[in-house]
């Protein structure tokens, strides 16, 4: 922890993700409407908000799966532009975990994980395999290395997907509702992996309505509605004293 702390204080003034006045439109829909957000090194930020509020779109702009209509995004000091090579380089530093896992069905768990290092970084197979095995141990399924995705449960698939993203040794990890496609009994195994990751000091930007996770791991919670950030608070403040009426209404809905 101390190493990470010193790292953070050292780079305290440069946020690893810096979003300024971001806009993204789909036709008439203004999916992201002027969002500014800083994510510090080692910080876990959880984004919540009603369906269609632009959470996914915001996340997808960060690794440029969506091209914004306005505003800027800096990753570790580098601005995201239309330069393809630069985008690919930055994407390698930004891991993403999807709601639907999106594992490559024609590759084994191990090959899913080694795909990035081998193809993008040009690693030797033995080196990539060693890393992949290490990561499979980390996510708790070392015995599934040679299984194909359709031989794995949802929770196992999502853990392979996390390992696949980690294999690129990213500086930031993006999670878009990583547990909402899972059966209830599998949610915990994925959240545990994410908690471990947060504990190790990984910078994470997480769209999730798992309040237990937010409470345990998040330093800040961002509440979004209609493409805008309504409020940014700590987990404690959110549950005890939400400032805005919209936040209160939303919280009462998801907490029932």
């Amino acid at each position: 922890m101390s190493v990470i702390d010193s790292l953070q204080t050292h780079n305290a003034e440069t946020p690893i993700v810096k979003i300024r006045d971001l806009h993204k439109r789909f036709g008439r829909t203004h999916a992201v409407h002027g969002v500014s957000l800083d994510v510090q090194r080692g910080e876990v930020v959880v984004i919540i908000g009603p369906s269609g509020s632009g959470k996914s779109t915001l996340l997808r702009c960060v690794n440029r799966l969506e091209v914004p209509n306005g505003g800027t995004i800096h990753i570790d000091g580098q601005e995201l532009t239309n330069n393809e090579q630069q985008i690919n380089r930055i994407r390698a530093d930004v891991g993403m975990v999807f709601q639907q896992f999106n594992l490559f069905p024609h590759k084994t768990a191990l090959e899913n994980i080694t795909m990035g290092p081998i193809v993008v970084k040009g690693w030797e197979q033995t080196r990539a395999h060693a890393l992949a095995h290490e990561l499979l141990v980390k996510v708790g399924i070392p015995e599934k290395a040679d299984s194909y995705p359709d031989q794995l449960s949802g929770g196992q698939q999502q853990r392979v997907a996390i390992a696949r993203a980690l294999a690129m040794q990213p500086k930031v990890m993006l999670f878009d509702e990583p547990t909402s496609a899972l059966d209830p009994e599998m949610i915990k195994e994925v959240l545990d992996v994410m908690l471990d990751l947060a504990g190790e000091g990984m910078t994470m930007l997480v769209v999730s309505h798992e309040m237990g996770f937010a409470r345990a791991a998040a330093r800040r919670i961002v509440f979004m509605d209609e493409g805008q950030i309504v409020e940014i608070t700590t987990p404690e403040a959110l549950f005890t004293a939400p400032k805005h009426e919209r936040t209160k209404r939303f919280l009462s809905q998801i907490l029932q």
Binding site: V94, N102, F104, V119, V120
Partner: peptide, 20 residues
Amino acid sequence: GQMEAARALGLTQGQAMRHI
């Protein structure tokens, strides 16, 4: 999602086509 997952890893369009 297959193309997106590949691109998110940093694969180029061509690499994603070829491998995925």
